[in-house]
C-alpha cells in the first residue's frame, strides 16, 4: 500500500482503525504514572519573550504577565500524556482563578479547528488559555525537546521549575511550589 493510492476516506478509515488498535494496546500496557515532581532550575533564567495567538486569534504576550506566576505547557493533541495531564491543568486553573497565576498551553504545529474539536472530546473542557505555536519557534526558544514539557515561571519572568513528561498539576506538592512562587 502506498500513500498515492489512498483516498481521503480510506486514509481516515485506516488511521481510525490503527488508532483504535493502538489505543487498546496502550490501555492494556499502562503508561507511566503521572508524577507531581517539578525539577527546580539550579540557575533560573529569563523566560524567552513571545507573542502567540489563541483560538480567537487574540494575541498573548508573555511579558504582559509579569507579576503573575505562569505555568507554560507545550503540548499537542496526538501526544497521549498531554491529554492525560490536561484535566489536572484545568483543575489547577480553576483553583487559582483570580490569583496571581495563569496557565498557558502552547499547542505545537496544529490547526485551530483541529484543536477546537479535540478539546470538545476531553473529559474536562479546558478553560485556560490555549495558544498556537504553529512553527514551534517558541518551543525551540525554550529548548523543548519532547512533548509535553512544562515550565513554571516566577513573577519576575524567570524560569524556576521544569517538568518533562506528564504530571498531575493539581497535586498538593505542585500547588505548594506555585504558592511559594506567588508569595515571593
Amino acid at each position: 500500500m502506498t500513500m498515492q493510492t489512498i483516498t481521503p476516506f480510506k486514509f481516515v478509515s485506516v488511521l481510525s482503525c490503527f488508532l483504535l488498535i493502538f489505543s487498546a494496546q496502550a490501555a492494556e500496557r499502562q503508561q507511566p504514572k503521572l508524577g507531581y515532581w517539578l525539577t527546580a532550575i539550579s540557575k533560573p533564567m529569563p523566560a524567552p519573550d513571545f507573542t502567540l495567538g489563541d483560538m480567537d486569534a487574540k494575541k498573548f504576550s508573555i511579558k504582559d504577565y509579569r507579576g503573575k506566576v505562569i505555568l507554560l505547557n507545550f503540548w499537542a493533541t496526538w501526544c497521549p500524556p498531554c491529554r492525560r495531564e490536561m484535566p489536572s491543568m484545568e483543575r489547577l486553573h480553576q483553583k487559582f482563578k483570580g490569583k496571581d497565576f495563569i496557565v498557558l498551553a502552547a499547542n505545537q504545529m496544529e490547526e485551530v479547528d483541529h484543536v477546537f474539536a479535540y478539546t470538545g472530546e476531553l473529559e474536562v473542557d479546558p478553560t485556560f488559555t490555549i495558544l498556537f505555536d504553529k512553527d514551534s519557534n517558541v518551543s525551540r526558544a525554550y529548548g523543548v525537546l519532547g512533548l509535553p514539557t512544562t515550565y513554571l515561571i516566577d513573577k519576575k519572568g524567570n524560569i524556576r521549575f521544569r517538568a518533562i513528561g506528564g504530571r498531575e498539576f493539581d497535586h498538593p506538592e505542585v500547588e505548594k511550589q506555585i504558592l511559594q512562587l506567588m508569595q515571593e
Partner: peptide
C-alpha cells in the same frame, strides 16, 4: 519538512519524575 515531533528526542537531561516518549 518542518514537522519536528513524534520521534524520541536524541538526548534528555531528566530530573526526578521526568519521562519522555517517541
Amino acid at each position: 519538512i518542518t514537522f519536528a515531533w513524534t520521534l524520541l528526542p536524541e538526548s534528555g537531561d531528566f530530573g526526578i519524575g521526568d519521562w519522555q516518549q517517541g
